[in-house]
Design a protein around this nucleic acid. Structure first.
Lengths: 107, 107
DNA sequence: CGGGATCCGGAACGATACTG
DNA sequence: CAGTATCGTTCCGGATCCCG
């Protein structure tokens, strides 16, 4: 049932790294969460051109990978907040390096 | 004709970063090339489970993105060597960081 | 507000067979 | 040796509508 964990045990960590940052919107979401917890609609606003389904999908994937925490508040209307876990926060050096590389070579 | 450069000008560097490292085999190839120039067949041996078509495709993509240099020697049988460009080499810090993250959190 | 359900086109990926 | 060509499949991502 857990589609994330039984991918292929012969694969090294590279494949899970890709599963975390390889999605089209993954890095944008992580990047947005570096500045602190965000509501679903905030993320939707912060990330141009993403659509609802994709945001949901990525967030679920990240939750399954232990990158984000989902916190639901039983308010009306409902409130949901997403926060990076420690594991997620520790992606910051990697993403900063990639970002620096991008600035230098892509513009 | 150059399908790589006219992707979408409104996109930021993230998308090209993904184009470079987001492929299933991209990081494996770059990683292999960190230790120096490699022939096509060497890469094929060094990277388990990759198939010819994928290796060709990724290498072409990387060449188009200025990550690797392709050098052909008119020998019989033919010899082709792939080397990281400066742009490609400068991915090392990023990939090392990702690798460290993987070791800590994935195993 | 925060999603779920469904449909769809195209890209990514894989396995072979063939070639200069 | 270093690819090309072809085919088949799976999966990703986008659009849209709906629901509590």
């Amino acid at each position: 049932m857990d589609k994330k964990n039984n991918k292929n045990e012969s694969r090294c960590a590279l494949q899970e790294i890709l599963d975390v940052i390889g999605g089209k919107w993954s890095m944008s979401i992580i990047y947005a969460l570096f500045t602190g917890k965000k509501r679903f609609s905030e993320l939707e606003r912060l990330i141009p051109n993403i659509n609802t389904r994709m945001l949901v999908k990525e967030l679920k994937n990240m939750e399954a990978n232990g990158i984000v925490t989902r916190q639901v508040f039983a308010t009306v209307p409902p409130t949901v907040e997403y926060t990076l876990t420690t594991k997620g926060e520790k992606l910051q050096p990697s993403i900063n390096e990639l970002h620096k590389w991008g600035l230098e070579f892509v513009g």
